[in-house]
Design a protein around this nucleic acid. Structure first.
Lengths: 115, 115
DNA sequence: CGGAATCCCAAGCGATACTG
DNA sequence: CAGTATCGCTTGGGATTCCG
């Protein structure tokens, strides 16, 4: 009907850092989504997390956790005991991702997995 | 307090296809988020899309669009004219991603970009 | 204009071994 | 237990060229 713009998205300037892209860079790592998902509810030890995620290798789990830590999404608590004990949990900033992770999960269930 | 589980996330079986991971694989491609974002509001031609996204190369834009097409998220309409004209738009399935893309955007704005 | 094909470097990532 | 180190394959993705 009218030639007027019907959307607020069309001419959004993405050059030099689109928020959508930026967010995906933070949570889009190969294992980050799943990791965050498993930390949504509770603190987990390294080994627990690895078992929960499934097929991730130690190397990758460590790397992804370090990156999430650097982004301030995950907190790493080291207990000075032997054998070593390290617990991972979401920071407050990490908690704010909950709606996103939840949406990702429900969308995937509805549109991706056989049902 | 209690040792009872306080979350519904903890023991979710992710092995062999976690919904969160699956969804991220669909929208997590390097340019897919931004592409979807720019298609949220309106249909766009190839060239428009490329300019909107910014620094993406033709090759990558094409590749990512093909993948989104295969997932049934994006529709490709070819006009049999010369010079060629191709329009991209979201399918109905693609539209269902709107809440996710929107959330990604607002989260990124609030937590990632300087403010 | 919108794409396909080729080339090629760099990053990603798994496997394995070692360590405090 | 929770890492780190090294190796080497595989993949991603940019640059460029050609085409209908």
């Amino acid at each position: 009907m009218d030639t007027k713009k019907t959307s607020r998205f069309e001419n959004y300037d993405c050059s030099g850092g689109c928020p959508v892209e930026a967010t995906l860079e933070v949570i889009g790592g190969k294992w980050k989504g799943v990791i965050l998902f498993h930390l949504l509810g509770e603190t987990k030890r390294f080994g627990e997390l690895q078992r929960a995620v499934g097929s991730v290798t130690q190397r990758m789990l460590t790397k992804q956790l370090r990156e999430l830590e650097r982004e301030g999404l995950v907190h790493r608590k080291v207990y000075p005991v032997v054998p070593p004990k390290v617990e991972y949990s979401l920071t407050e900033k990490g908690q704010t991702l909950k709606p996103i992770i939840t949406l990702l999960q429900s969308w995937g269930q509805e549109h991706l997995l056989e049902r």
